[in-house]
């Protein structure tokens, strides 16, 4: 029954990839289509409002500077609101201004689509901050990621010198994808009993006669975009484990689909742009294969239970239920954990710190690879980066100049791809080592031994992959963690985005090389295998020593 639940959700995703991918392709193809009729009037109004009459194509450099400047303005505005929230409207619960380093961490966290929360939403943020900073950033960070991914796709599949107009892509991402989808999902969640109100905290009498405060607020609207934008976090500190965020198994499936469908449809969008949908299905197949592998690891590890608990004679028939919600059980908890770390959403419906060592390894590995569907747009860009690397390695093996989609891959592209690939493990492993070397880092570790290593490794991996979930036993709301994870989130977001836009800008100007019988094909089963192999080999070479010290050592000690 558990496996059947999982298979049904996967089947829904596979069935919806093509129609959703077709819609997304039409949104960004800039050819006249039906979606113009529905949303064109709103976009024309916005363009007039921001003085964007003409929307010329941008070179990759102009595109990168545009998205960077837009993000800087949003960061400045958000930081100001968090530091002044006490004096701003919609603060019925009298919440104070946020501390400086925590504001720094929070604003970076939400701008980079990480949504790592070193605070608890119901006590740390006013309703105004929840809506004007947190929710606003959830839309804009997702739209930024989506826009960059589409620009990258245009670069590797198109001709000319430009890769689209950032502001046009950014506006369209909001008007045609995220806002309509968020409205629909919000209404569905409200219908399924998720609160949506500006009323203050409820004070109720318990059965024992004591007084208890129950936090409520505009939950449903935040809940919808936090998943649709693969943002993560939550209105409440417990995220989607909280019954007001995720009351039933049905809302759980809706939330899983909300965060999974758009990233899953992007490979198909890439195939449409490449005028060969087989290219997209090869990438989708590689992502889904990796996903099913990691999901199986999580599911069967949790189902087996915790050996240390089992020897105590505790009933293990339900699996390892520590830190999980009874209404979801092992299947829906495992699937949620696998999807939230694959799509780098980072919201949780069970506590990842209490996953079994191998279950925790599954979630950790998905973030380390950062290509298994991935966050809004970023996962596809990373996977295509590995595809180009795979083509390059195969070219070296047969002594032929590598080509990808009819363009020669030269040292300039490989230099940029090497930086993007190597930056990810560096910004995870270097701060992890620093945390162990300093009292500031060690002082926050609440579990001795291997699990303590996993806690720190998970925190920086989650930050670098812009995921945002955590092994929350780590006491991480300190200036040391706020600043170091803040910097890791920034580097994890922008280095690969800028480098890959540069690759797109380089490829878009190149002459097409006609396909011959000797051309290495990237739309068949052989390349599907090479792509998976490239991802796993690079991942193992960079991260295996660290995960042996953490989750694998912990698993072996459990017996």
């Amino acid at each position: 029954m558990g496996i059947l639940q999982i298979l049904i959700v996967i089947a829904i995703v596979v069935l919806l990839v093509k129609p959703l991918g077709t819609y997304v392709y039409h949104v960004y193809s800039n050819d006249p289509n039906k979606t113009d009729k529905w949303f064109g009037w709103l976009e024309r109004f916005i363009y007039r409002l921001i003085g964007l009459k003409n929307r010329p194509g941008m070179t990759w450099k102009r595109y990168a500077v545009s998205f960077l400047l837009t993000n800087i303005v949003l960061v400045a505005l958000g930081y100001l609101i968090l530091r002044l929230q006490k004096y701003l409207p919609f603060n019925p619960n009298g919440i104070e201004n946020m501390e400086q380093t925590l504001s720094f961490n929070t604003i970076i966290s939400f701008m980079t689509n990480t949504n790592l929360q070193h605070y608890s939403g119901e006590t740390g943020l006013t309703y105004f901050s929840q809506m004007a900073v947190i929710m606003m950033m959830m839309f804009t960070s997702a739209a930024t990621g989506f826009s960059v991914a589409i620009a990258f796709i245009r670069g590797i599949t198109g001709k000319g010198a430009t890769i689209g107009n950032f502001f046009e892509d950014f506006v369209k991402s909001h008007t045609r994808i995220f806002i309509p989808a968020a409205v629909v999902v919000t209404l569905v969640l409200v219908a399924l009993q998720v609160p949506q109100t500006l009323d203050p905290v409820l004070t109720v009498k318990t059965l024992e006669g004591a007084s208890q405060n129950i936090a409520i607020g505009p939950v449903a609207s935040l809940e919808s975009i936090k998943h649709l934008g693969t943002n993560g976090g939550g209105f409440f500190g417990a995220n989607s484990a909280h019954p007001f965020e995720n009351p039933t198994p049905l809302t759980n499936v809706i939330e899983i689909l909300s965060m999974w469908l758009l990233p899953a449809s992007l490979p198909y969008v890439y195939g449409r742009f490449a005028k060969n949908t087989k290219q997209g299905w090869v990438v989708f197949g590689a992502m889904m294969t990796l996903f099913v592998g990691f999901l199986s690891l999580i599911y069967f590890s949790e189902l087996r239970g915790n050996p240390a608990m089992n020897v105590l004679g505790i009933d293990a028939s339900q699996g390892s239920m520590e830190g999980k919600e009874v209404r979801f059980g092992i299947p829906q908890s495992s699937l949620f954990s696998a999807v939230t770390t694959a799509a780098t959403t980072g919201t949780v419906n069970n506590m990842h710190d209490t996953l079994t060592p191998l279950g925790g390894l599954g979630t950790l590995a998905e973030m380390m690879l950062n290509v298994v569907f991935g966050g809004k747009g970023v996962g596809l860009v990373n996977m295509l980066m590995y595809a180009i690397l795979g083509v390059f390695l195969c070219g070296l093996m047969v002594g032929r100049t590598p080509e990808f989609l009819g363009r020669k891959i030269e040292p300039r592209e490989m230099k940029l791809i090497a930086i993007a690939i190597l930056a990810h493990p560096f910004i995870i492993l270097a701060p992890t080592a620093i945390a162990f070397l300093t009292d500031l880092g060690q002082g926050s570790i609440t579990n001795p031994g291997s699990h303590g290593i996993s806690q720190v490794l998970y925190e920086y991996t989650s930050s670098a992959a812009n995921n945002g979930s955590g092994f929350e036993g780590l006491a991480d709301n300190t200036p040391f963690w706020n600043l170091t994870t803040g910097l890791v989130m920034l580097l994890g977001r922008y280095i690969s985005m800028i480098a890959m836009l540069a690759v797109a800008g380089s490829l878009v100007r190149k002459q097409w090389v006609p396909e011959t019988i000797g051309t290495f094909r990237t739309d068949n089963g052989l390349f599907y295998g090479i792509l998976i192999g490239t991802v796993l080999i690079i991942g193992a070479l960079t991260f295996l020593p660290a995960i042996v010290l953490g989750p694998i050592a912990e698993h072996l000690k459990l017996g």
Binding site: Q100, I498, A502
Partner: peptide, 30 residues
């Protein structure tokens, strides 16, 4: 005062990203 440090840190990091864009531009051109 801590606010100023946070703003300077953010400005410094975003400045580095702009420098990275310029450097990537050189790699693409050269």
């Amino acid at each position: 005062m801590l606010d100023l440090y946070m703003v300077l840190l953010l400005a410094g990091v975003f400045g580095l990203f702009y420098g990275f864009i310029v450097w990537c531009g050189r790699v693409v051109e050269e």
